[in-house]
Computed example of a mutant assay.
Amino acid sequence: MIRTMTTAVNTMNQLQHKLDMIGNNLSNSATHGYKSTDAKFQELLYQQMNNDKADRADRRSEAGIRMGTGSRLGGVQMNWKVGSLQVTDRQLDFALTEPKQYFNLIQPGEGGEEIIYSRKGNFYVSPMDNGQNMLVNEEGLPVADSSGRPIMFSGQATNYHVHPNGLLEVTQPGGSQTFELGVTVLEKPNSMVQLSATNFGMPADLAGLGIQANDLLTELTGAGRSQIGLQNQALEASNVNYEKEMTDLISAQRAYQFNARSVTMADQMLGLINGIR
């Protein structure tokens, strides 16, 4: 009975992580640029119980029985597929149409500024004290150009247009300015650190992981900018499959209820045994 309760509790603990991931996916189903996650389970070690007392050729029962100890969360896999594009008719909304390509953002940190990456392309204009404007995301983080510097332009800009190669054209009364939006390809996105629902950063200890920065990402500069895919006045929707998440939620809830019922039944059987006089 104790083994039954332990096995069920182990599985319930891991199923809770699955339920948390499904809830996070559903809550971000309307978040632009969000990538859904999925949990993969693995079975824990078995214990082989051999029965050698009836070792006969015509026996019908198995020579032994394998008793499991539950399951555990084997890994978390992120779905990197491109979400559907939603036309917004807003000049500062840009959607990346190629997979694994991310906008470069500048985030302040304890050791100075660092570049982080996001596919959420709804940008805004933030006025500066010197009369210029800075291009920022909805969190107020500056959008970086291909050199890693903040994109700043005159406060009298009247029109914004981005070309497919990531060239941002800002129209002003006296002419226009062009900026190269910083775009990076995450070669191994599963190795990146998820900072928020849509932002990703580099791992802190690359040397300890035995990898280099060039193994994880490629900055699209020079001739490589021809690979950039961008669409004006549109945003990439979340790639969360609502129907799949609801199906997984029902399945996980049923599995959780089954294991909870196993604990209850084992407790009842222990009560009966303890009640025998």
Rank of each mutant, 00 (worst) to 15 (best):
G64T: 07
I116A: 13
G112A: 11
D129Q: 13
Q42M: 10
T37N: 14
L44I: 04
T69S: 15
L19S: 03
Q156E: 15
D129V: 06
Y34E: 01
E139I: 02
Y46C: 00
G33V: 12
N51S: 09
D55F: 11
N104F: 06
Y102R: 06
S61E: 06
P164F: 14
S84R: 13
H17C: 00
Q77T: 07
L45P: 00
Q132T: 05
G70C: 10
R72V: 00
K100Y: 13
F153N: 03
V143Y: 09
R72Q: 10
A95V: 01
P142F: 01
S27Q: 12
Q156K: 13
I151C: 03
D58L: 11
N122T: 05
R60S: 08
V136A: 05
G70V: 09
P108Y: 15
Q86T: 04
N79S: 09
G109F: 10
N25F: 04
G121M: 12
I106L: 15
P164R: 12
M152I: 06
T69C: 03
Y46V: 02
G140T: 10
V125F: 05
A63V: 03
V162N: 03
I106G: 02
S36T: 03
F41P: 00
N133L: 07
L92E: 09
N122D: 14
P108M: 15
G109W: 11
R149C: 01
Y34A: 03
G74A: 15
Q48E: 09
L92Q: 08
I151K: 00
R149T: 04
I116K: 05
Q77G: 00
E139L: 09
Q91R: 08
W80G: 01
G148C: 08
N159V: 01
A30S: 07
V82C: 01
N130I: 02
E110Q: 13
R119T: 09
A54L: 11
E113W: 04
E62R: 12
N28Y: 10
L105Q: 04
G70H: 14
H161S: 07
P150N: 01
K120L: 05
L19I: 11
G111T: 09
